[in-house]
Write a protein that binds this DNA or RNA. Structure first.
Lengths: 190, 190
DNA sequence: GTCTATACTAGGATAGAC
DNA sequence: GTCTATCCTAGTATAGAC
């Protein structure tokens, strides 16, 4: 692991962009060098343990972003549930560039993924899931209803990203998100 | 490209299993050698153009399987729609080993994927999608309804695979498939 | 903290015997 | 059609100057 994580945000964002596009195995130090504008050895200066270290820094960074911009706002009971949900949708649309960018959760999760990284990703997934369940209960869903709805939502997010990447249809992700917003709204209007 | 494709099914299945587990970049000739029990040079005998050739053979093989076991049965109007749908679910549960095995559509679709392969995958995706749309219309859905339902279904398949792989929850995929069956049944009962 | 240069290894591929 | 042996390049990582 490396650095204060509060500095060099720009660097980590550049690394992130490459990992999410190429996956772990597909990402080469040369690609990272190009993408960051730093020479290979400079990268090793920042991340002595190499590629895996770089990925770890990215995953930790993304984790913080997710908590800050997605999970915390979801749980903010000062805001109306409906608004919190649509805010979240807006946030993830930006995060995935309307479906044009992959999710690290998907891209990394091939055999090789290191245990520590997988654990953190699982933790984040559960935090997000639980925040959604919380929201669901708050608007009157039973625990089971809320759980199923939340799981389904995250499944659709990941699935829509996969399919959009496959077909190149730029509206796939957005359409699913609109659908989810409508469904949530309909539930509220019952 | 290589071979009659009708022979060496066993070989291709072995290659398939490795590619779907490791992705294209993560798959090494050594892994393929171990997985097939053949020495590297023997693999090159079968697939002179190397790794990409091996992948192509796998994708073509999978394409044939999908058409034979999924798409054709879906369109077989001799069978009742309800039965065709549940048969398809059973087939894909087996195909993905109840969610424990990845989908090539997802695993390959990182930047590097070669054009020819991507095209074939897209073609297969569309064939599957259209077969579902056909089925939907047959049971009384409007074109738009059928299209949305079909897209959603395939998105859920891919998403459930991603999430199950992430969390290790062996029931994720199965649960979604049961849900889809129920929804379809409910539509029929309307 | 960035660079040029270089070491080392693993991965992709080939030659040629059997 | 399979094997052993080998080649070559690309990928990871390090040394050391500035």
């Amino acid at each position: 692991m490396a650095q204060q994580a509060n500095e060099n945000t720009v660097l980590i964002e550049a690394l992130f962009d490459i990992f999410r596009n190429h996956g772990y195995e597909g990402t080469t130090i040369s690609l990272l060098s190009e993408g960051t504008g730093l020479q290979k050895s400079s990268l090793y200066h920042h991340f002595p343990a190499g590629k895996e270290d770089m990925l770890k820094a990215v995953v930790v960074y993304v984790s913080m972003q997710v908590h800050k911009h997605i999970i915390t706002p979801l749980l903010d009971t000062q805001e109306k549930p409906e608004k919190r949900f649509s805010n979240m949708i807006a946030t993830i649309k930006a995060f995935y560039s309307d479906g044009r960018k992959n999710c690290l959760l998907n891209v990394l999760n091939l055999g090789e993924a290191k245990a520590e990284i997988k654990e953190l990703q699982n933790y984040d997934y559960n935090a997000w899931l639980n925040a959604l369940i919380q929201l669901g209960k708050e608007v009157g869903m039973s625990l089971q209803e809320a759980t199923e709805w939340s799981e389904r939502f995250l499944i659709v997010v990941e699935g829509a990203l996969v399919i959009q990447r496959l077909t190149g249809n730029k509206l796939t992700f957005e359409k699913q998100m609109e659908y989810e917003k409508n469904q949530f709204q309909q539930f509220l209007n019952q």
